[in-house]
Nucleic acid binder design. Structure first.
Lengths: 222, 222
DNA sequence: CTGGCAATATTGTTGAACAATGCATCTATA
DNA sequence: TATAGATGCATTGTTCAACAATATTGCCAG
């Protein structure tokens, strides 16, 4: 068996390039606000300008890029308003998803897996990895709702939120403290205590939002 | 003042074409399942294939088109699963939006305007117009939540749902009976009775979903 | 300094070209 | 006759080069 890991062959070239760019953006290689020249980036990615433009349209719709007519695209700059909005929507989606979770839902397994990955990454001091695993944990929470549309919408929110995370200097403070809280949440859920799980989730969201906003406030000052 | 109605100048050509196609699809000119040939449609819309492809990517992401690699795009065929999913998400979004509505929120004005438009269209026997106004009514409900991301997500759901409406023969049955229910809802909301409004909304969603699903069942039989 | 203007770079859009893929048709064989 | 394989055709996938439309930059005059 050849390597079928990590990257599903990417149906089309544009899809693949979109994934690549998404990684570069959420991974911090491309910084928020950075201008993306069509010609330069096309050459760098070895695709034609036309194909790259298709990708730009995709990512703009996802909120990762900002498009100003006749002035090109740049990496979106997350605002406080955006962060507030994203957390508001997260509450609206995640809390009911947990509260109404069916007891043996398969997504609970995915949550446990993400949790294990987070603990592992913490052991290695890989805070970026902790952040990714944490996002997967919450994506799994949304999957409890069994709604494909909600799942894909949430994936979008997640990508945008990672953009904001990227602006924050200290990822340990941001992601590190939540592993234990989330472990509690998972335990409550596995024990069938959906209300307890929902409460912990709410607490997590409040605290995480506060951390991000505080970090933002610090940044906007300087 | 020249005509600045209906169509905001459409920032880019692609945006404009996207809007045009969206109208043709939700308006029923393009039927679900219909194959869209790049060459033919590009000629028809008087744009290049490249530009049209950008548009295809947009609408595919919105759920209005289906893309099969190397086999082109076609108008999405709504499934029962899609309808169920959409209504589930609508409940999740709209009900809290109403329940937590701030008393004098501007969106309430938009709701009233949509209501008036619906009544007017009913007077003319324009059931398609009633449907559009009804969708605007519910979009206004979502705006009560003051969340741009929720608003744009809902717009997407709406477009997809209209696709399903298009499959239904009798639009009067579908949209006609709800005007009075929605009027009640609006009255309750204006009177500050958010709970009553939320209850009426829930009833509406249940009944509307049932109508659509029943019509679907009839269609799939034949 | 400041406003206006020309020169330049970038995006917006097109048309043509060719490779890759899927679909329909035809033919030869059992 | 039915079926598998081969062949050709139409469509999509992607690139390239060109030009128009729109910003941005730098320069010059006042």
């Amino acid at each position: 068996m050849t390597d079928m890991n990590q990257t599903p062959p990417a149906a089309s070239l544009a899809e693949g390039i979109a994934a690549e760019l998404r990684d570069r953006i959420t991974g911090g290689i491309l910084r928020p606000g950075q201008r993306l020249s069509e010609a330069a980036l096309a050459a760098d990615l070895v695709v034609s300008r036309n194909t790259l433009r298709e990708v730009f349209r995709l990512l703009t719709r996802e909120g990762l890029l900002t498009h100003l007519p006749n002035r090109g695209v740049s990496v979106a700059v997350p605002s406080m308003a955006a962060v507030l909005d994203i957390y508001r929507v997260r509450r609206l989606i995640e809390v009911p998803a947990i509260a109404n979770a069916r007891p043996r839902h398969p997504a609970i397994g995915a949550m446990a897996a993400a949790m294990a990955a987070a603990q592992d990454a913490r052991g290695r001091g890989d805070w970026q990895g902790v952040g990714s695993a944490n996002m997967r944990f919450h994506a799994a929470i949304v999957e409890l709702a069994d709604s494909p549309r909600l799942t894909s919408f949430f994936a979008q929110l997640t990508a945008e939120l990672r953009l904001a995370f990227g602006l924050i200097d200290d990822p340990q403070e941001l992601h590190g403290s939540f592993i234990d809280t989330n472990a509690d949440l998972l335990a409550a859920l596995q024990a069938g205590d959906t209300q307890g799980a929902a409460d912990r989730l709410t607490a997590y969201l409040d605290q995480s939002e506060r951390l991000v906003l505080e970090a933002f406030a610090r940044i906007e000052l300087r």
